[in-house]
């Protein structure tokens, strides 16, 4: 389990756990991010990240990315 902020740009990951308070989890879930989802890190330099889930792209504040735990998966 790695926090999302440590994942290199271009890698795909599976979300294992979201360790955030209720309202944060709710917002993530409203935007379509849940445990079990496979997402691709499109942009991770400094500051916020962009992840891709299917066709949608989400910007996540860096502080948020510490709370999302993921595992890397091989790209198909």
């Amino acid at each position: 389990m790695t926090p999302l902020n440590l994942i290199k740009q271009g890698k795909s990951v599976r979300i294992i756990k979201i360790r955030a308070g209720r309202s944060l989890s709710q917002r993530l879930s409203n935007m379509g991010l849940h445990a079990g989802d496979i997402v691709k890190v499109v942009n991770n330099t400094s500051g916020p990240l962009i992840v891709a889930k299917n066709y949608s792209r989400l910007a996540l504040g860096r502080g948020m990315s510490f709370k999302i735990f993921v595992e890397e998966i091989e790209d198909k």
Binding site: M31, I50, Y55, S56, R57, L58, A59, L60, G61
Partner: peptide, 12 residues
């Protein structure tokens, strides 16, 4: 307290 972290959709 904390500034609410950014979560937003990036439309194509």
């Amino acid at each position: 307290g904390e500034t609410t972290p950014l979560v937003m959709e990036i439309p194509p």
